[in-house]
Every structure is written in C-alpha cells, then in structure tokens.
C-alpha cells in the first residue's frame, strides 16, 4: 500500500460556477452514462436519483440586485479528516460496501455488497448518496441502451457518483494494451458530466499531476491547513473553495467563482467570521 501511495492518483474536479448556466446537461449525461433508472414520479426530488444534482443558490437580495448561481454537486469523494481515506461514508459502512481507493482517491460503492442500512446516507452532509426505493425500471425498449460497463442497481441499496470509474477501467485497459500501464493521458479518462458540459465549466483530472489542468487551477496545498489540521489539499487559488471544507471531509470537488457571495455559500461561518477569513482565503502560508 505504501508504494502505491507514492504514485497514487488523486482524481478530482473543479467546477467553474461562473460558467455554469444550470442547463442540466451534466445531470442528463450522468444518468444515461450510469444506467440510472426512471421513476414513475420524478417530481419528488428527495426520492429520485441524480448522482449529479444541480443546486440553485441565490444571494438573497431583492430584484435589481438578485444574483443566481447553479451549483452542480456530484459525490465529493471525500478523503476524510487529514485526507487519510476515512471519508464520512466509508468509515461508517458496516459491510465494507464502500471503500476508499488509495490508488485513485475515489470512493467506491459496491451494489452487490450493500444491504441498504443507509448509515452512509446519514453520514454524508452533501446528500450525494441515493437509495433505490423502487425496483429499477426503464421505458419499454430503453434497456437496450444500457451501458454494459456499469451494472444496474437493484432495489434496496445505496448508489452514488463513481467519477465514471468504468471510464478509468477502460482507459487503464487501453494503457495496458499500449504497453505503458502507468501513463493514462488526461483526455483518456474524463467523466461523462465533464465531456457533456457545453460551457466547459467542469474540469476533471488528477490533482496530484501538475500537468493536469485541474491541478493547475486548484493548486492544492500539500500541507495541512495551519488553522485546521484536519483540512488537507486546500486550494491556493483565492477564487477556489470546497463545500463544507472546515468539517474536514477533504472533498475532491472544488468550486471556482469570482463572486465573494458565492464563495461564502460554500461553508458555514459565524457572524463576522467570513470578513476575517475571506482576505486570507486560499493563501495559507505555503503559496
């Protein structure tokens, strides 16, 4: 495990909220790529499955000053406190149906292992995990369009975004066939939502690889945040933030925005706290 750590990937994402138009292409592409079934009634959003979900944020001001931002939210692939791999959901799963891939930083979900206790859903503050309340169903004839690379899920289990891991498996297969298994070009492994975003708001790649675009935008800090030892990989880009960063979940999905109010929505702050933090945001000493 140690030796794998050194050459380990850390796949992550940065989403430019100023580019996102809220069109929902990411949600649609994700659903079709990952064989997400249909519900009779999709209007109850607390019971329907969308691995990638777009939230609507507003600055809360009235008419002429109103601003709205759409925030796509896939599974955040938390590294857990100190980025040791004990993400909120992985550490609580009683049957090891979800684990943390130290080689990729991706949090897995094994459908045939999950028995549906839903503890992981309670532990996840992002609501990124979804339960199959019903048997999966596709409209007549649509089963033929299912991807053979992603197994469909049965009733009574939890599922979530996998960063399109099957695309990583395919990319690795190709790298093996080409004889250079350690070299997977950036463009060979991209998630469905990334490739589907018409605005190019989503950037995906290896956060550990300085040649990848995601690394260049995020500039992750390899050292723990001096203000909070649980937080690792904080962005050194002042415009980049993570969701609920101070909980120490160490997510691998970063968000980018020029607007201060948007960045402030990323986490909870006590009164007056934000004004002290915002100027230091993203510049934790090592920059």
């Amino acid at each position: 495990m140690k030796q794998e750590h050194n050459k380990a990937h850390k796949f992550g994402m940065v989403i430019d909220l100023d580019k996102c138009t809220g069109c929902g292409s990411c949600m649609v592409s994700c659903m079709s790529e990952n064989n997400v079934p249909f519900k009779d009634d999709e209007s109850d959003k607390k019971k329907s499955i969308t691995w990638m979900r777009v939230y609507k944020l507003t600055n809360g001001k009235s008419f002429p000053d109103t601003e709205i931002v759409y925030m796509p939210r896939p599974c955040q692939h938390c590294g857990g406190k100190g980025d040791h791999g004990h993400s909120p959901c992985v550490s609580v799963c009683p049957a090891t149906a979800t684990d943390y891939g130290y080689d990729t930083g991706i949090v897995s979900q094994i459908y045939t292992r999950c028995f549906g206790c839903r503890y992981c859903m309670g532990a996840c503050p992002y609501h990124a995990r979804y339960f199959n309340w019903w048997d999966p169903k596709w409209p007549e004839g649509m089963e033929k369009y299912l991807s053979p690379d992603v197994s469909p899920r049965m009733r009574g289990i939890v599922e979530k975004c996998s960063f399109c891991y099957h695309r990583y498996q395919a990319a690795r297969d190709q790298a093996y066939a080409e004889g250079d298994k350690d070299n997977i070009p950036e463009e060979n492994y991209q998630t469905a939502c990334t490739t589907a975003c018409p605005a190019g708001a989503i950037v995906f790649g290896d956060l550990n690889n300085p040649e990848h675009k995601v690394h260049q935008i995020v500039k992750p800090d390899p050292h723990p945040d001096p203000r909070n030892k649980h937080v690792v990989g904080k962005s050194r880009n002042p415009k980049v933030f993570r969701l609920l960063e101070r909980l120490g979940t160490n997510t691998k999905v970063y968000y980018l925005s020029d607007r201060e109010w948007v960045r402030k929505q990323g986490d909870n702050y006590l009164e007056g706290e934000w004004d002290k933090i915002k100027n230091h945001h993203g510049d934790t000493s090592h920059g």
Partner: peptide, 12 residues
C-alpha cells in the same frame, strides 16, 4: 425490517 436488502443482512 429497516434494511433494504434483508436477505443480505448477514453481510454485517
């Protein structure tokens, strides 16, 4: 009753 896949309860 609470678990989604009761037949897999023994996995725990």
């Amino acid at each position: 009753i609470d678990i989604g896949q009761p037949l897999r309860g023994w996995f725990i």
